[in-house]
Design a protein around this nucleic acid. Structure first.
Lengths: 241, 241
DNA sequence: AAGTGGTCTAGACCACGTA
DNA sequence: ACGTGGTCTAGACCACTTG
C-alpha cells in the first residue's frame, strides 16, 4: 500500500495523498469528522507523527480543520469562510461586508472562446451564464457575469430564479464540488453603457474588473466570474506575506 | 530564560521569538547562516524537534530559508524574491517581467495627512517623496509615488539621482530594514493629466491604482507606494489559496 | 473518565552539500 | 568523512471537549 523504498516519495506525502483521495472520492464529506490521528496511523501502518504532518499540510491548505479536543473535520464553505477567503472587497474603512445580490439574467448559452479556454471546455460547449448585480447597503456596486459548465450545473437555470448569495456553498451542497482556490486577474476598465445603467454611473467611469477562475482541490476549473466594481466607496484588499 | 510552566506559552513559540529577536537586533544578518538546529537546541536547552518547529514557522513566513545539506539562512531580498513576492503585475500572457524605472522627481516634503497616517508618523513630519515611471519593454506603463520617512532614508535624496530598480533590496542593504509583508488596496481611477502625459495616454483613461504599505517583520510601516498602472497590456495577478 | 488534538523529547536513519 | 537539514518513530504528558 505505502511505498517505503529509499529515495522514494516521503511517507507523509503518501499519507496526504491518501487523505486527499478519501475526500476527492466522496468517502469523507465536508463538515464531517475524519478518524483520529492515532486510528489513521494504525490504518496506514505509520506513526502518529507522520499522519500528523500530513494533516498539518492539509490544514494549511484549508482542506481540513482541526478542533482541539473534538477531532479533525473536512472543511466546509460556510458563508464565513467564503467571505473571509474569497471575497476581497471592503468599504473604504477596511470593513468587509458581504453584499446582497440580484440576478439580472440567467440562461444557457454556447461558451465564448474565452469562457471555453478559462474553463477548459471544448469550443461552443453549452454553459450557464448568470448576470447579477451586487449591492452594498442598497447601493448597486458590482456587476458580475458568472459562467459555469452546463454539465453538471444545468439545473440551476430551471429554479425559481433565486440564487443564494454565496454560490460556492451551493456548489458544495448541491453538486458536491468544493472550491479550494482561485486565480484572479485585475484590470481597470471603462464602464460600458450597460455597466453604467446597472450601477447608476456614467459610461466610461473607471471600474475595477476582477476576472476569477475558481478551482477545485485538484486544480480543475469550475467557474469563471467577471466582476466589475465601482471603487468610489470600496477597494480590493490584498495582503502579501 | 525559557518559561516551562504549565499552561504558559509553547516552548517553540518562545524559541521562535528568540530567533526573531536575534534577527531584529542585528545579531543575525540577512544572507548569513544561522547556527544548526542541533546547536540551537543545545543553546536553548530544548530538543531539536522544538527548534525545528520554530524554524519551520519562520520559513513559512519567509523570514528564514532552509538549504538541505548546507544550513538555515536569514532570508534576503534578492531581486528574484522581490519579484516573486511583491510584484504582481504580469503581461497579458501571464509572464512576470520586472520593469525598469526612471525617477521623475525626488525631494523632501512635509507628509500629507494620508502619508502620515499610513506610515504612522506625526502630521507634517518630513518625508522623502519619489515619483518614477516604470517601463515594460520600453513602454511607460506605471507611475509610482513612493513615500518614505526622512529618517532614516534622507540620504537617498543626495545621491546621484539614480535609484536601483528593486528598492527593497536597497532598504535592506543600506539601512538594515527588511520588508516582510505588505498591505495593498486596489482601485480603478481615471488618469490625471499628469498620469496621462507620463504614460502617453488620454486623461481619464482607467488606471489600476495600487496603494501599498510595506511592513517590516514587526508590522511597522516603512514605505507608502501608490502605483497607477495602465492595464491595456498587463494585469494584476492574485492567487487565492 | 475517555478520547481528541497539541507539545515535547530522544534517538534513528536518509539525502544532500562541502571539503 | 562530516555536518547539515529532512523524515520517521515511540512514547510521554498537557489542554480541551464530550459523555
Amino acid at each position: 500500500m505505502l511505498s517505503t523504498e529509499k529515495g522514494g516519495i516521503s511517507l507523509y506525502i503518501q499519507v496526504k495523498d491518501l487523505l486527499i483521495a478519501k475526500i476527492g472520492n466522496g468517502d469523507w464529506v465536508p463538515g464531517n469528522i475524519i478518524p483520529s490521528e492515532i486510528n489513521l496511523a494504525r490504518e496506514f501502518g505509520v506513526s502518529q507523527g507522520t499522519v500528523r504532518k500530513a494533516i498539518t499540510e492539509l490544514v494549511e491548505n484549508n482542506v481540513l480543520t482541526r478542533k482541539q479536543g473534538r477531532g479533525t473535520f473536512v472543511s466546509t464553505h460556510d458563508p464565513q469562510r467564503a467571505l473571509f477567503h474569497f471575497f476581497h472587497i471592503t468599504d473604504n474603512d477596511g470593513h468587509k461586508v458581504l453584499p446582497d445580490s440580484r440576478v439580472l439574467r440567467i440562461g444557457i448559452k454556447k461558451a465564448s472562446a474565452k469562457e471555453a479556454s478559462c474553463l477548459g471546455l471544448a469550443a461552443k460547449t453549452e454553459v450557464i451564464r448568470i448576470e447579477r448585480v451586487r449591492n452594498f447597503s442598497a447601493r448597486p456596486t458590482m456587476v458580475e457575469t458568472i459562467t459555469l459548465p452546463a454539465r453538471p450545473f444545468g439545473e440551476l437555470v430551471g429554479g425559481n430564479g433565486e440564487l443564494p448569495n454565496t454560490l460556492y456553498e451551493l456548489y458544495e451542497k448541491q453538486f458536491g464540488i468544493t472550491i479550494h482556490s482561485a486565480d484572479e486577474k485585475l484590470r481597470a476598465v471603462a464602464a460600458s453603457k450597460r455597466d453604467a445603467a446597472v450601477l447608476g454611473l456614467e459610461a466610461g467611469t473607471p471600474l475595477l474588473e476582477i476576472e476569477r477562475v475558481a478551482l477545485t482541490l485538484d486544480k480543475s476549473p469550475v467557474e469563471l466570474r467577471v466582476s466589475r466594481c465601482s471603487t468610489h466607496n470600496h477597494y480590493y484588499h490584498n495582503t502579501i506575506f
